[in-house]
Structures are given as structure tokens and as C-alpha cells.
Amino acid sequence: MNKIKVSFKVNNKDYEIETTPLRRLLDILREDLKLMGTKEGCGEGECGACSVLIDGELSLACITPATQLEGKEILTIEGISDKDGEPSYIQKAFIDKGAVQCGFCTPGFVMATHKYIKDGGSNDETKIKEALSGNFCRCTGYAKIVDGVKEAIVRHNDKEAK
């Protein structure tokens, strides 16, 4: 495969890499940038464990090729935590509501929740589920994840009110 140069931002940091055009963003994040928080669950865009934000849209790193990254701003789970590496309000809400078990799907769910709240998502349970509908979890049965999202929205609104 021909090689290409692509420039993009990950968590506000600039990168330029040379790679093959169909190399997956997931491999670039994990192998080149050593950002291991984005996970491979299925490798075919089904499970959502590799969810990241690209230019603000929820996207799957396992089916995003390098060629499509030019000029893009990518946000991964490593860019979600507070500056000191402490959990953000969404991540704290997930902990407090028991939304985490094996944790392998968790970064993906946190990204989907971040996107939902960023877009002004409400506490409506159906809307929350739609926003998380591309992410699979096999441990929790989803109930506590929905609780976690609801709690995060409450905390977000409290923060905004202040």
C-alpha cells in the first residue's frame, strides 16, 4: 500500500505521521501514540469499545482509516479525565452508580455519554439509550450505565447552574 502523511490533533496535541492510508485509527492511537484506553472489542464497528470523537462526532476508531484523519480533531478517553488524571464528573458518576464492571467497554460508554451531554442531552431514558445504542456491554445489563449517565447529567446541570 502507498504511504501517506497525515496531520491531526489528538486530545489537543498535534501529530503528523506517515502510514498506509487504510491503517486504522485504533492502531495509530494504540501502537504509535501509546494511548491504550481505546479498546478493540470486535474490529468491525459493532461493539463501540473503540468509540472516540472525531470533530465532535462519535466515531469508531476500528473502522476509521488514516486517510480520513487529515486536519481532524480527535478526542479519546485520555482526553476526558480532569487535568490531574482524576476522573471527570461523568467518570465519577459512572463509578458512583456502579456502571463499571470488567471495564473493557467503559471508555466507549464514557465517550458516548460525553457526546450526549455535550449536545445538551436530556434525562429522558429513551434518548439516553439511543445515544448509547452503538455500545455493547456484557457485564452490567446496561441498567447501571443508564443510572450513571443520568447522574452525570444532574452533576453537569449543577455545574452549569453555578
Binding site: 485520555e78 463509578i95 463499571v100
Partner: peptide
Amino acid sequence: KNIERFDAKSKVTGTALYADDIP
């Protein structure tokens, strides 16, 4: 009591090391 999971923080922040994450 609902004691917080010891691994909760590392899992929500994506820093927990699964087998494929170990350097």
C-alpha cells in the same frame, strides 16, 4: 456497604492495563 471498586478509577479513565495494553 457499597464500597467503591478498587479498580473503578483506572477503568473509567482508560488506564487499567488489559493484556493487550501492557508495554
